[in-house]
Amino acid sequence: MSSVLDKGAPSCFGLLAEFPNVDDLLQAIHKSREAGYRDMEAYTPLPVHEVCHALGYRNRLPFLVLIGGILGAVGGFALQYYASVVDYPLNVGGRPFNSWPSFIIVTFETTILGAALTAVLGMLALNGLPRPHHPVFSVPQFKMASGDRFFLMLLSRDPRYEQEDAEQLLRELEPLSLAEVPHP
């Protein structure tokens, strides 16, 4: 166990506590925040909104998806306009070159495509995925984070972080296990 004296470079990446259910996890989050910790991450086997609220996250994804959709729409229509009016005007039964009603469907499809691709790629990019390795994976019991266990990690980069204090805080919450997550 390293000492609190060595505050400049914490010996580990974070401290990982394992809980049997989501209520214990929520309690742990609240207690840690009360104690002044801000940089922490919770791991759950299923999406739990209460956990996100407790951690106080903001989510920029919807805005990005809106932008993706708009770009898809503008790009789709511009493509058809350029092809049918500028580069390859073809008189079909005397209809105007810019026969916009018949361009609506492709515009609609490119809107959906742009928004959907942004939703998925944006989600992955904001989450920093793909990232095959992460320090938490080196803790053996972390396997259960994709099964039936709930984890809370206090990150050592939090200015409030002090090894012994963090350990004591988490121990008082009676986790199933407590482990140091080594640096990558």
């Binding site: 791991y43 994804l61 919807p62 972390f142």
Partner: peptide, 24 residues
């Protein structure tokens, strides 16, 4: 792809999933 069930990941994940549903 290194999914680890982090709470902030789930938040964006659910948003993306719901938006995809809305688009589909």
């Amino acid at each position: 792809m290194g999914w680890r069930g982090a709470a902030r990941h789930w938040e964006r994940y659910e948003t993306a999933y719901l938006l995809l549903a809305g688009l589909a």
